[in-house]
């Protein structure tokens, strides 16, 4: 019963067959095509947290910008609440501000000559022309409470450089939620933040997700914080512009299936000196593949221990019991868990 209704519901956002190709001027001959995203299908549900993880350069930020409408994909379709928005995408999203992007670099994202108050005031005013100053001030006060920067007067009169990195990230968060978006794409929101402050930012996002029903796309290369924030959500593991495995995060960590996911998980350091892992990663090579002139077959081919000739041909994702995996040789990939023991909490079971 429940399954049926769930399926009938349109996802908040749906990406279908997204490709992104950048042109790089060639030195002598024709321009080079850099195929940064390849055939991406992804759905983001209402109130859902979806994490994008993968090595540097795998296309996380590019995908995040397509989701937010900051980039138009080279090909593919984007649906927001069931409506096709590619083409008119930029307009629809930015005029309703239902999808907000939080940039990785909090310093670059804030205007250095504007006070925090001015940076928060402007977007609210633009989108609520009729609001009085007092009404906007009230909203700003409410936002400052939500992000835990009180008393607000102390922060609002400051300029970005007078705040710490963690405080600036909170201000970006406040600005993103000020327009009550349905979806926030947060690009590495905590990677530059000190450990002692990281957790409170992650908690804030969890709270916004639970209390205000906002969906999140959490972009990160750090699987530990990803597990923390998206414990009941899904994770999409990216490799060279493709989603190679997507599933509930608990399932992916407990029983990773794609050979790349398996190597990635095994490389994650565990904060326990008694943890005995195997440092020898299941990889054939350390060299990342190229985005230029990519063939039909598997992007992971050169590094994969389980590759064979079939992998050079085109193939689509395979559905396993718990995930969708882009690998044509799953019968050769070990099924043993990477971690012997994972402490499940009631939340993430």
């Amino acid at each position: 019963m429940e399954k049926a209704t769930e399926q009938a519901k349109t996802p908040l956002m749906r990406l279908k067959g997204i490709n992104m190709v950048f042109k790089k001027p060639g030195a002598l001959f024709a321009d080079k095509n850099i195929h940064v995203l390849k055939d991406i299908d992804l759905e983001i549900g209402e109130k859902e947290i979806v994490a994008l993880v993968g090595e540097s350069g795998c296309g996380k930020t590019t995908l995040g910008k397509i989701i937010t409408g900051l980039y138009r994909p080279t090909s593919g379709e984007v649906y927001f609440e069931g409506e096709r928005v590619s083409g008119t995408f930029d307009k629809k999203i930015s005029s309703y501000n239902q999808v907000q992007f939080i940039q990785q670099d909090s310093y670059a994202a804030l205007n250095p000559v504007r006070t925090i108050y001015q940076s928060l005031y402007a977007p609210i005013k633009t989108h609520n022309r009729k609001w009085s100053r007092a009404r906007i001030d009230e909203r700003i006060e409410e936002l400052m409470g939500l992000i835990g920067l009180l008393p607000s007067a102390q922060f609002l009169s400051k300029y970005p450089h007078q705040l710490s990195g963690g405080q600036r990230q909170r201000i970006l968060m406040a600005r993103a939620i000020s327009l009550e978006p349905k979806l926030i794409v947060a690009d590495e929101p905590v990677s530059m933040i000190d450990v002692s402050l990281r957790l409170s930012l992650l908690n804030l996002m969890k709270e916004l997700n639970e209390k205000l029903d906002m969906s999140f796309v959490y972009i990160s290369h750090d699987l530990s914080t990803t597990r923390y924030i998206a414990h009941s959500g899904r994770v999409a593991v990216m490799y060279l512009g493709e989603i190679v495995e997507v599933g509930k995060i608990g399932d992916v960590i407990a029983s990773p299936r794609h050979p790349y996911t398996r190597a990635l998980l095994q490389a994650v350091p565990i904060p326990d000196p008694d943890f005995k892992g195997n440092d020898e990663l299941p990889l054939k090579s350390m060299q990342l593949g190229s985005l230029e002139n990519r063939g039909e077959g598997c992007s992971f081919f050169d590094r994969c221990l389980y590759a064979d000739d079939a992998c050079r041909k085109k193939f689509g994702p395979v559905k396993t019991e718990t995930a969708e995996v882009l690998c044509c040789g799953l019968d050769r990939v070990p099924t043993a868990p990477v971690f012997e023991k994972i402490i499940q909490t009631e939340e993430n079971s």
Partner: peptide, 24 residues
């Protein structure tokens, strides 16, 4: 203790994590 308690792990218990309040 605060630092360790604020560091999520990919396999450990994450239900009891606590940030260190205040700022550096």
């Amino acid at each position: 203790a605060g630092l360790i308690g604020a560091t999520p792990s990919i396999i450990g218990d994450i239900s009891e994590m606590k940030p260190i309040e205040g700022s550096p």
